[in-house]
Computed example of a mutant assay.
Amino acid sequence: MAHFGYTMMTEQAGPRELVAHAIGAEKAGFDFSVMSDHSFPWLESQGHAPYAWSVLGAAAQATSSLPFMTFVTCPTFRYHPTVIAQKAATMQMLSGGRFRLGLGSGENLNEHIIGAGWPAAPVRLEMLEEAVGIIRSLLAGDTVSHRGPHFDVDNAKLWDLPEDPPAIGIAVSGERSCEIAGRYGDLVIATEPRRELLEAFDTHGGAGRPRIGQLPVCYDTDRDAAIARAHDQFRWSLGGWQVNAELPGPASFEQAGTHIRPQDVADVIPCGADAHAFVEAVRPFRDAGFTEIALVQVGGDQQEPFLRWAQAELLPALREL
């Protein structure tokens, strides 16, 4: 049976609101929660980018059973892998074992702020692979000294370790990232319902491990209002990750999305209040073999009505899948 999650989207809500949304998701009956880790919103109309790790710690204390996961953190530019290992260990302890660490090769949108440039995708994936190895060693309790092509570590050790280290998920979009996920990941993450990604993950050692997808949705009793909001705040998502990983800021995403019409967005993102339409949008992920699907409700000020509707109608309909 698939599990259904809720996305705490830092690009569209402030820190206190995100904690309240996590509480609401737990009460609504979502099986887990994921959280984006951004320094910029995709579009200025979204308007937010609080520090995800502070919010996660607060949300862990404000809830009792909801599992959390970064979706995803880049451990190679803004954050050194040793810092990520410490964050993850602390979050696992604060949450009482309810945390999973989702990692990916990042987007220029968020990582450009340190002024180190933005290398080509093969280099970013090399960096990711090296970073995951460092993180795994530290979470295992090792004292790590490392001299690699991308990272140096000098006598690092985590002094507060959870009894069980957090599971590590790797975001994938092609063969090379699937290879890294299969070799180093406890689970795989994708934002498209592409069966071939899961098959490649299995080929590289991931068979039998969880696979998590994500889908934006836009609930509103007024479908036209839902379409307008999805177009205003989420048209960037139609660009595809080969484009989205490269653009440097909201102005670039604004320019890249000028040709995208409201109907183009509505063709991809289920909008309105028809639970059946939302179920049908989720179905390709289930059919492709995803074991967990996280939903993103578009609109930071629209989370409470969505959570009420999800509890009453959407989650029961999804569980019939």
Score class of each variant (00 low, 15 high):
H48M: 08
R16Y: 02
I23M: 14
A28Q: 02
L18T: 12
G24I: 08
H21D: 11
G47I: 09
V19S: 07
Q46W: 02
F40K: 06
W53Y: 12
G29Y: 15
K27W: 02
E17H: 10
S33Y: 07
F30D: 03
E17C: 10
H48N: 11
Q46R: 06
H38A: 05
G47F: 06
A49T: 05
F30Y: 10
D37Q: 05
E17Q: 14
G24Q: 08
P50H: 13
W42H: 14
A22F: 01
W42F: 15
G29N: 15
E26M: 03
F40V: 03
D37A: 09
E17R: 15
H21V: 01
G47E: 10
E17N: 07
M35K: 06
F32E: 03
G24E: 06
G24K: 06
G47K: 12
P50V: 12
W53C: 04
K27D: 11
W53A: 08
G29K: 15
S39F: 15
W42T: 09
F40T: 08
E44W: 09
D31W: 13
F40Y: 10
W53F: 13
Q46G: 01
E44M: 05
F32D: 05
S36H: 00
G47Q: 08
A25E: 07
H38Q: 11
F30C: 04
F30V: 01
E44Q: 05
Q46C: 04
F40Q: 13
P50A: 13
G29Q: 15
A49E: 03
D37C: 12
A25C: 08
Y51C: 04
E26F: 03
F40P: 00
G24F: 05
S36W: 02
A20R: 13
L18M: 14
S45I: 02
W42Y: 15
W42L: 12
F32G: 03
A22V: 02
A22K: 01
I23R: 15
A20Y: 00
E17L: 11
V19Q: 08
A52V: 12
E17P: 03
F30G: 01
K27G: 04
M35D: 09
F32R: 05
W42I: 11
E44I: 00
S33G: 14
H21Q: 15
L43E: 07
E44G: 03
P41E: 01
Y51E: 13
A49S: 12
M35R: 07
G29M: 15
P50T: 12
R16Q: 10
I23D: 06
E26P: 00
E17A: 15
A25S: 11
G29I: 14
R16F: 05
I23W: 07
E44L: 05
E26N: 01
S45W: 00
F32A: 11
H38M: 04
S33V: 10
H21S: 07
E17Y: 02
S39E: 08
H38L: 03
A49D: 04
S39W: 13
P50W: 12
H38N: 06
